[in-house]
Design a protein around this nucleic acid. Sequence first.
DNA 1: ATAAAAAAGGTGCAAGTGCAACTTGTTAAT
DNA 2: ATTAACAAGTTGCACTTGCACCTTTTTTAT
Lengths: 212, 212
Amino acid sequence: MTTPFQDLTKSQINKLYDLLGVHIYTFNDNQEILPTIKNENIIGIILDGYAQILNIEYNGNEIITENLYKNSIFGSNISLTNSENYQIIARQETIVLVIDYDKLINPKNLVHNYFNIFLRNLFDIINIKFKEKNERIKILEKKQIRDKLLEYFEMEHKKSRLKSIYIPFSFKDLADYLAVNRSAMFRELKHLKDENLIEIKNRRITLLYKNL
Amino acid sequence: MTTPFQDLTKSQINKLYDLLGVHIYTFNDNQEILPTIKNENIIGIILDGYAQILNIEYNGNEIITENLYKNSIFGSNISLTNSENYQIIARQETIVLVIDYDKLINPKNLVHNYFNIFLRNLFDIINIKFKEKNERIKILEKKQIRDKLLEYFEMEHKKSRLKSIYIPFSFKDLADYLAVNRSAMFRELKHLKDENLIEIKNRRITLLYKNL
DNA sequence: ATAAAAAAGGTGCAAGTGCAACTTGTTAAT
DNA sequence: ATTAACAAGTTGCACTTGCACCTTTTTTAT
């Protein structure tokens, strides 16, 4: 997993901060981030903490668009869609580093090796995010809950090569990730259990149909 | 819309080709692209033509993951998920330029201004793709066909600021994009028509609930 | 000009899903 | 230790959707 300042020394990171004229902000739990930092043409990096991008629908519904953990990057030029109603909220004490996008693509900076390393890191991070989005789409494209679950299992299985999958969040969050009703998802999990296709122990699901 | 060689002169493009040691391949209509170019650690650019990335499911079903038009970029490090069964097929005579990913992130290249311009272009293109994926996810997250349609309308409306939306592909393709059954989508479109919320003329849909 | 193929449009029906409204179990707070 | 809050698990019911199977219209090929 690539991080923004990977392969950079502390002194190089300081030089980078100077070069880009970064700003660092600290937010409290449940504090909104966007009123403080302007959301146009910037890239934000979560130095520490945890925040969420929420989409606000016409009816007031809030949908979690993205989880921003330590080392996540975000910004209008990266992940956010244009002219949408969204909010970014710190879910812990969260430290955010803000960079002007224009400074990031300024060719003058490219003579500094530490800057090039940084740019490559960002490039990699975006590519990883891109893959994650593609994975989610592949799941969401499935019409039936069963197929969504099986696709999710399949992907996790291919990543770990293990017969059992550990769900890194609550079942409620899994239902949101698959974009299905929570209780309907439970019903389908029960069906899969009844058919002896899976076993569930807490957040660990064993795929009985895989013989490795 | 950013293109890979935007802001570069012909001679700069030639220098870039030399620097990166690119390869250019031509494919016929319906020819598979992946057996010819190795699919590991490369970036491909469609110089001309039209191709599709297809995901092949366990049951043989083929799902169109991505349409690659002129100036689209693709590659294992960008859009394709790991260890999946996929195919890239030319849908016309298609010219593909192939670049080693390693050469692309080689810091030595960054002293050349034309290379920096190229890298910034690629960065922009990926970011645009990223936004498109996010848009699609926002639609796919909706549980009901009606809500998917309305979300799609809303996004297109926000882009064009027009009361009427032109669907740039067939209704069949729209159904695939929304990941719903085609005839069920038609039924819902009919309901929206009956409720005087929309008007449909060929591929143009007028949003009667928007008063501009 | 005609046939063939594809897209658009429609409908009955069965199956699947969302939703509401529970119970039970677990975690966090005082 | 007790309560409160949240997650997990379950179920009935109504509604939506997918699917199969049509017809009609439009596009493409010969």
